[in-house]
């Protein structure tokens, strides 16, 4: 199921592009915000929760998920270099699964690690906030990667759609339409964080059982479907 050569090509392509700069910029920004907030406001559980929930989980994790998830396959399909993977006796679902693992790894590295760091800077993990949001970031990394990898496989405008989902659906609709929150990776991951953090510090609109089912379901279905789409990927038609 996992091919180390595909993995090597994927992470080198992912980290070698200019787009990868965003992977570094966002975590640095988060840590900078954490330092500034701590310096001006001191250690406060609610403020810490606000920064981690409002910026780290709501903005940074999905954005990094978009870059890593779509970037793990989209550019290769765009420039045609995916041919060198497809013209091999390697099962197409193996290619997808491997790319998913790489995308998850990259998303976790660039979102969960800085979230943890920022949490400790903000209030020294008071009320388990740093750990809770880090777990949320880890969980969200998996679902986002699967979702955006699928998007990268089926669409040439994956980054745009990914940004629309991450910013418009999750951030805007999520805050305006309560129902939309049920269908939000962010809320599912927060429901996991809710269990870890101190009373009332993290809230989610989705119960943990439902969130778990949806997280696992979305990840599995998106990955399976991406594998099917890659099996039927047509590389031509531009004559």
């Amino acid at each position: 199921m996992y091919d180390p050569t595909v993995a090597r090509l994927t992470y080198r392509a992912l980290l070698g592009r200019r787009r990868a700069a965003i992977l570094f910029v966002l975590p640095v920004l988060l840590v900078a915000i954490a330092v500034a907030v701590r310096a001006f406001a001191g250690a406060d559980d609610d403020v810490a929760s606000g920064v981690l929930g409002g910026f780290a989980i709501a903005t940074m994790v999905p954005l990094i998920g978009v870059i890593a998830g779509t970037g793990a396959i989209g550019p290769e399909i765009d420039d045609g270099s995916i041919v060198y993977l497809l013209a091999k006796p390697v099962k197409r679902p193996t290619i997808i699964f491997t790319k998913l693992i790489v995308a998850i790894g990259v998303t976790m590295l660039f979102s969960a690690v800085p979230t943890m760091l920022a949490g400790f800077i903000l209030n020294g993990n008071g009320g388990q906030i740093a750990v809770a949001y880090t777990i949320a970031a880890l969980v969200a990394s998996i679902a986002y990667s699967a979702l955006f990898l699928l998007l990268g496989t089926v669409s040439r405008h994956a980054v745009v759609f990914g940004l629309v989902y991450a910013l418009v659906w999750e951030a805007l609709f999520g805050s305006l339409v309560p129902g939309a929150r049920t269908l939000s990776v962010q809320q599912w991951s927060l429901s996991v964080a809710e269990k870890v953090a101190g009373e009332g510090l993290v809230t989610s609109d989705v119960g943990l059982p439902l969130a778990t089912v949806l997280l696992v379901g979305v990840t599995v279905v998106a990955t399976w479907y991406a594998g099917q789409k890659l099996r039927a990927l047509k590389l031509a038609g531009e004559e």
Partner: peptide, 12 residues
Amino acid sequence: IVPEREGMYDFL
């Protein structure tokens, strides 16, 4: 297969 398109992992 030797494809016509040029995309081929230029960073390698």
